[in-house]
Amino acid sequence: MSMQMRTFILGMIGVPALLALVFLTVYGEQAGAIIARILPRVPMLLTGSADFSSLEGGFVANILISLWSMAIAIVTGAMLGTGLIARSAFVRLPSSLVMNLLRNSPWLVVLFAMLYLLPFEIEIFGFTVSLSPAVKAVIGLALPVTANIAEIFRGGVQAIPSGQWESASSLGYRRLQILRHVVIPQALPLMVPNLMTMYSMLFIGTSLVVVTGANDVLSVARTIIAVDGDAVATAIYIFVLLLFFLFCFPIAILTRRLEHRVGTSHP
């Protein structure tokens, strides 16, 4: 059994067991009764609906928001990253400014800023697009992630030996062609583990979107606690922690596996 497989199995058993221990310590003899009370709330926490009838809220919303943010940030991050390595200072310096500003901004502050900066709806080519809290959350999270992906992109590109640039230019390739045909295909495998780590951090960061009013798992959790009483609060939050762990931990293990593979093999 590989090292990572052992870590994976230990983690998947150990961490839930630890959370169960905390749960039992907190609730003692009431544990059974509490479980009976929160079990019917599980569909609500997972999907935002009491009977899985829709998949728009709760933990599913966190997943959707994270995927949209990541998809947007990969595109904008690659663009900003290309700006960071541009030859022209007119492109490079503003890119670097934007990247450093966004990368050093607390995510929660950016989310609050989006809440007040972005209007309720905007008009694009005559169409009115309403900016729901979830959309604002996606944009707010995509901004700092863009800056981090730009840095990952820059690092990956600069890890490719300069001889590749030299031989490609001597074959007549232009700068952007070299990036596209020669450098990025080689840099991508180096960037994937970092991108996955970034995604994990983004996913954990989706817990912040509760401040935008999006119907995410924490919003749902707070509503349930308001209805069912403070007695269930600890149990609900332990359950939410478990959800985040079960989602992020496999990504972390997979990342470590890929890192190992990138480190040992030649393309």
Binding site: G163, A168, G172, Q177
Partner: peptide, 29 residues
């Protein structure tokens, strides 16, 4: 560069492409 080709000390082949692709990439692209 169409008229002047260069061969380097460290070969500088494109490691992510096959031998055939190394030869054909630039003339095609």
């Amino acid at each position: 560069r169409h008229q002047v080709a260069m061969v380097f000390q460290q070969y500088n082949l494109f490691p992510h492409r096959t031998v055939m692709q190394n030869l054909t990439m630039a003339p095609i692209q």
